[in-house]
């Protein structure tokens, strides 16, 4: 269980990363915290010709508070964001979800953007990005672009990133005066979610985002729901997510969790 052979490039500037990606295209992989990629390399599931280590580029290591958003660089580790003093105030939903990402020993190395790039449908950070309606900042040697969360996740482990693009960072909106709730069910503490739900109170009603069920984390907005309308809406949403069976849970069980946890969380944020 040893990785295949590859070249290793320790980049010191973003330009070096973009050049590497431009030259090697799909044969290059960005190595940040490595908490997903290295396991895949050890199992020989991935066989890049070049790994580009971006963790010694100071400009990617920043968390920037803007007036209505927080911009998190590609080199920001999950532990860095957890330790950011403004987190609970600026990004309360992330403050709830982030401790559920892996374990302390993986959050210390793993990055926020790496989790998004990996695009596991059960992962917490993609769910938070979708629930908050954040944006992904992509950059290649040719161009820069911003992609909305709902357009970024293209399928299970698939994203809108092109082979020559670096996820330079993400932008998460700071939403004042709202309420947030997050809950996930996993087989064990720290496992990938069987179902994860994030609810936010919106100006017009409520949004529920669900991970672990569909191929991508999926958000749904409703106007203020009353009485049995909540159950009906959640039931329809649960079916639309297209749950499937796997070795850890059944589709029915997942739909049950969406209905029950969704109801609880909506109740919490609309309380």
């Amino acid at each position: 269980m040893k990785p295949p052979a590859f070249d290793y490039l320790r980049a010191e500037t973003v330009g070096e990363v973009l050049d590497g990606l431009a030259q090697q295209g799909g044969d290059a992989r960005v190595l940040a915290g490595g908490q997903s990629l290295m396991a895949m390399l050890n199992m020989r599931l991935a066989k890049p010709k070049l790994l580009i280590d971006i963790m010694r580029i100071p400009e990617l290591r920043k968390i920037e508070r803007k007036t209505d958003a927080v911009v998190i660089g590609a080199g920001v580790r999950q532990a860095d964001l957890l330790a950011w003093p403004d987190l609970a105030e600026a990004l309360p939903l992330v403050a709830l979800a982030l401790p559920c990402v892996g374990h302390m020993q993986t959050r210390s190395r793993g990055t926020i953007c790496g989790s998004l790039a990996h695009a596991d449908p059960s992962a917490e950070m993609p769910l938070a990005l979708v629930a908050l309606g954040g944006e992904v900042l992509l950059r290649s040697a040719r161009r820069r672009r911003r992609v909305a969360a709902k357009d970024f996740f293209a399928g299970m482990m698939l994203t809108a990133r092109s082979d020559d693009e670096l996820i330079e960072g993400i932008s998460l909106p700071v939403i004042n005066g709202s309420r947030f709730a997050f809950r996930e069910v996993a087989r064990r503490h720290g496992d990938f979610a069987i179902v994860a739900c994030a609810a936010t109170k919106t100006p017009s009603g409520v949004r529920l985002a669900v991970g672990g069920v569909a191929d991508v984390p999926t958000a749904r907005d409703w106007p203020r729901l009353e009485g049995s309308a909540v159950d009906d809406a959640l039931n329809a949403f649960a079916y639309e997510l297209g749950a499937r069976d796997d070795v850890h849970a059944t589709a029915r069980y997942r739909r049950d969790l969406v209905r029950m946890i969704g109801r609880d969380l909506i109740g919490e944020v609309l309380r």
Partner: peptide, 13 residues
Amino acid sequence: GMLTRSCLTLAAQ
């Protein structure tokens, strides 16, 4: 100063 899984880390890093 960071807890690190040494099996998920390259010596080069």
